[in-house]
Computed example of a mutant assay.
Amino acid sequence: MVETASDETTLASLVACHGIILFTENYEACVEFYQTKLGLPFWYEKESLTCLRFGDGYLMIETEGVASKGRKTRSENPTALRFNVPDVPAAARLLEAQGISVEVNDYSWGTTGAFLDPDGNICSLKNADDPYFR
């Protein structure tokens, strides 16, 4: 890892708020999914976009994306939205009660739960007891 001097200005030191922009084909369904089913708080709305709070950043949902009938491949969408939670199986049960199918897997490095949004984008739960998240 490259270290920078503490008095050096970097792009990261200038960022006031970080965010993710998700381009969607099923715009209304994706807004409903992230806001209602996952519970991300509404922040603001403009023409063709809705912005939700996502931790200490935001998830901006916009139009003009491309949906998939199933899970998108990594070449179709090489990004997954990760939700670090204290208890993956409990969070999976909460989502499944809302009709969201979650595949829970245990690995040597932790537990994950994979699920899809209405456009086929991969979302993932991860156990937050990982020491890197403290």
Rank of each mutant, 00 (worst) to 15 (best):
E3W: 03
E3V: 07
T4E: 12
A5P: 08
S6M: 10
D7Y: 00
E8M: 08
E8F: 00
E8D: 07
T9K: 12
T10C: 03
L11M: 06
S13Y: 02
L14P: 07
L14W: 04
V15N: 01
A16F: 01
H18Y: 00
I21Y: 02
I21F: 03
F23N: 10
F23H: 11
F23G: 03
E25N: 10
Y27K: 05
C30Q: 11
V31C: 08
Y34P: 03
K37R: 15
L38T: 08
G39W: 00
L40W: 06
P41Q: 09
P41K: 06
E45H: 12
E45I: 06
E47P: 13
S48F: 15
C51H: 06
C51A: 12
L52C: 10
R53M: 12
D56K: 13
L59C: 08
I61V: 12
E62Y: 00
E62I: 01
K69D: 14
K69T: 14
R71Q: 13
R71W: 02
K72P: 09
T73L: 05
S75C: 08
S75Q: 14
E76P: 11
E76G: 11
N77H: 12
P78E: 07
R82G: 08
F83M: 01
N84A: 15
V85Y: 04
P86L: 02
A91I: 03
A91V: 05
A92L: 00
R93L: 09
R93C: 04
R93Y: 00
L94R: 14
L95K: 06
A97K: 14
Q98M: 07
Q98W: 00
Q98H: 13
S101K: 15
E103T: 14
E103I: 13
Y107S: 13
S108F: 03
S108V: 07
W109F: 14
G110R: 04
G110V: 05
T112E: 09
G113D: 02
G113M: 00
A114W: 02
F115A: 09
F115K: 04
P118I: 01
D119K: 02
G120N: 03
N121H: 15
N121G: 12
N121Y: 11
I122Q: 13
C123V: 06
C123R: 04
L125N: 03
L125F: 10
L125E: 02
K126S: 15
A128W: 05
R134T: 11
